[in-house]
Amino acid sequence: MKPAPFDYHAPATLDEAVALLTRLGDEGCDVKIIAGGQSLMPMLALRVARPEVLVDLGRLEALDYIRDEGGTLVIGAMASKQAAADSDLVRRAQPLFQAATELVGHRQIRNRGTVGGSFAHADPASEYPAVALVLDTEFEAVGPDGMRTIPAADFFVTYMTTSLEANEVLTAVKFAPFAPRRRWAIQEFARRNGDLALAGVAVTLDIEAGLCRDVRIAAFGVQATAVRLTAAERMLEGRPAQPQHFEEAGRVAATALDDPMGCIHASPDYRRHLVGVLAARALTEAAARPQ
């Protein structure tokens, strides 16, 4: 289990990285970007991924930050997940994102793995894409033509694929202010603590005068990419925030789910069922969360 050979570059600046990626792309090279490498390294070891060139963003220390920009939480792409999990700022500003981060793997993984790396990897079993879909999340990327901002809904394309161009570098993740009144929860089901989830659900919603408003529910681990459970969201909109409605939302979510994945640990039917259970649990947890 040793990686196949590859060439290696570790650009010292973002500009250098973009120029390098552009040049390599022009030359037709098969390039992979490595940040923390916690997802890529096993793929290299198994020779499932065998790039000709590896571009290491590890020197882009300027992208390692977590800060508040006028109420918007901005996390540099190279900030480690553990830094996000430990950050009081993240906990205050984006409690759902903080909770999701604590669910990722184990500390050794979170220490090395970066926030940007996870989003760019777009593993369907990852908590992050689903969380991005229920928060107002934007991705900032820099390419040869400068910087652009990509809303979460346009960022995740399909299995391990984002809308980033090959010569673009994800530089930051921006979370719009999370209103203190807003409720949130994340629930996942894994075989063991720390394993990739067989299924998971992230929710945000408001409860106004006892009624559900602006309900957002997203599932992960069940399809090629994280997915909003819009049928359940619509069903719940304006309904009383009560257990029977959350259960019904779970049933609606499960029923409406297209083609869940199957694997040795969970059949498509079981995954569908889990999404329903987890959606109902997440809604219940969110509704019960003290303001």
Partner: peptide, 10 residues
């Protein structure tokens, strides 16, 4: 059982 008890297990 799962059906009878609903997905949240209430």
């Amino acid at each position: 059982s799962a059906i009878a008890n609903g997905p949240t297990g209430t």
